[in-house]
């Protein structure tokens, strides 16, 4: 079995994986990082979005072995200790989550959006979320949360 070494949330890790093991499986099953979720099998829902070397990707659509030497950030690595990341804080403040299942991917996507476009319009936010499906919130408060995080200048 191949082994893969990478940095996850600032920690160097290695694990034995099958060639077919997906990054999300490595995270959830080998590293116990169950915050990243799997909501579909067609690469559409975005519940599995993490950052690999600073960009958002769907961890259900990349092999673990492809991540050799990369730097992965998951939802578990976003807060600084007990202090929520401003995007997490904005989601809490504006009720941008209900059941919480899409939330990790949604937050990771939103963080990447503001990195690329710090002051997005409402339309740009909605378009950016094309690959993140939420069944609970109707997106209204998610959009509001991202707007608020953006306005807070982060």
């Amino acid at each position: 079995m191949p082994s893969v070494s990478l940095t996850v949330n600032g920690r160097k890790v290695s694990a034995e994986v099958e060639q077919r093991t997906l990054l999300v499986q490595l995270l959830r099953e080998k590293l116990g990082l169950t915050g990243t979720h799997v909501g579909c099998d067609t690469s559409q829902c975005g519940a599995c979005v993490v950052h690999v070397d600073g960009t958002s990707i769907k961890s259900c659509t990349i092999l673990a072995v492809q991540c050799e030497g990369t730097n992965v950030l998951t939802i578990e690595g976003l807060a600084q200790g007990d202090k929520l990341h401003p995007m997490q804080e904005a989601f809490r403040e504006h009720h941008g989550l209900q059941c919480g299942f899409c939330t990790p991917g949604m937050v990771m996507s939103a963080v990447d959006l503001l990195k690329n476009n710090p002051k997005p319009s409402e339309r740009e936010i909605r378009e950016w979320l094309e690959g993140n499906i939420c069944r609970c919130t109707g997106y209204h408060n998610i959009v509001k949360a991202i707007q608020a995080a953006s306005q807070a200048g982060r």
Binding site: G46, V49, T55, S56, I57, I62, W128, G131, N132
Partner: peptide, 9 residues
């Protein structure tokens, strides 16, 4: 094409 995460790959 696709969505942002797809476009990143």
């Amino acid at each position: 094409i696709g969505d942002p995460a797809v476009r990143n790959r």
